[in-house]
Simulated assay, not measured.
Amino acid sequence: MSRVPQGFRLRFNGRAVEGEIRAAAARGLLLGAEYVLGEAQAVVPIDEAALSRSGTASVDVGALSAAVSFDTPYAVRQHEELTYRHAPGRTAKYLERPLNAARSEVAALIAAQLRRALR
C-alpha cells in the first residue's frame, strides 16, 4: 500500500485573532474588576451607604487596564485613615485589602475569557 500525501490550506487572519483576544482580555478585566468591587463593597465603611453606592468598575480597552473606584469627597480619607472606627465587618483599606486577596480569582477570570476566545 502506498500512501498518498494529503495537503491542507490554512488561512490565518492575524488581525481578527488579535481583535478577539483583546476583546476577551477586556471582558476578563471587567469581570475581575467587578469581582473586586463586590468584595470591596462588602467591607466598605457604611453610614448612609453613599460611599458604597459610588463604587464603580471600568475598563480601558485600548490600554487593557481596569479600575475600581469609589467617588465621594471622603473616599480616600476613609480608605487611608486607620484610626477611624467602623461598624463590624467594615474597615479602612476597603479597596486595597480585597484587591490583594482576590489576585488569583481575578487572574482566573481573565484566563477563562482568554481560553474561551482561543477555542
Rank of each mutant, 00 (worst) to 15 (best):
S65A: 07
E39H: 03
Q78L: 15
A101R: 15
D60A: 12
Q41R: 13
P98C: 12
R11D: 10
A92S: 14
A107I: 06
P45A: 11
E105T: 09
V4Y: 06
A25F: 05
N100F: 10
N100E: 13
A67K: 13
L114K: 05
S69I: 09
A67F: 10
T56L: 12
L95R: 02
L51H: 10
I21T: 09
P98K: 05
T91R: 15
R27W: 01
A23C: 01
A42T: 05
E105G: 05
S65G: 00
A75F: 09
I21Q: 08
S52N: 13
T56H: 08
F12L: 15
A92Q: 04
P88L: 14
T91E: 13
G38M: 02
Q78N: 08
R115M: 06
P98L: 10
L82H: 02
S54L: 02
T56G: 13
I110A: 08
A23K: 08
A63R: 12
A63L: 01
P98Y: 14
E48I: 12
A102V: 03
D47S: 10
R103I: 00
R90K: 15
R22N: 06
H86Y: 14
A111F: 09
E39D: 00
G32S: 00
Y35C: 03
A26V: 01
G7I: 02
E20A: 15
A16S: 12
R116C: 01
R97K: 09
N13E: 11
A40I: 04
P45M: 11
M1H: 11
R116K: 12
A108P: 02
G62I: 10
D71S: 14
T56R: 15
E48G: 14
Q6I: 08
R97W: 04
V4W: 02
Y35W: 14
V36Y: 06
A87W: 06
L114G: 00
S65T: 13
R90M: 12
L29C: 01
A23F: 08
F8K: 11
A107C: 09
A112K: 05
V106N: 03
G38Q: 02
A87Y: 10
H79S: 07
L31D: 09
S58P: 00
I46E: 04
R97T: 11
R90S: 11
V59C: 04
A107M: 11
N100T: 12
L114Y: 01
G28P: 05
A117T: 07
R53E: 09
A111S: 12
R77K: 02
A87K: 14
L114W: 01
S58E: 15
T72V: 02
S69M: 11
A16E: 13
N100W: 12
K93F: 04
Y35I: 03
R85A: 13
Y84D: 00
A108L: 01
S58D: 14
F70Q: 03
R103T: 02
Y35L: 14
R11T: 07
S65F: 00
A92F: 04
E81Q: 14
D60Y: 07
A50K: 13
G38H: 02
V36G: 03
T72M: 06
A63V: 03
R77G: 02
G28Q: 07
E48C: 08
K93P: 01
G7P: 00
A107G: 07
E20H: 05
L37P: 07
L31A: 13
A75K: 10
A92H: 10
A16T: 11
L37M: 15
G14F: 05
V106H: 00
R103M: 06
A87C: 01
G32V: 01
T83A: 13
H86G: 09
P5R: 11
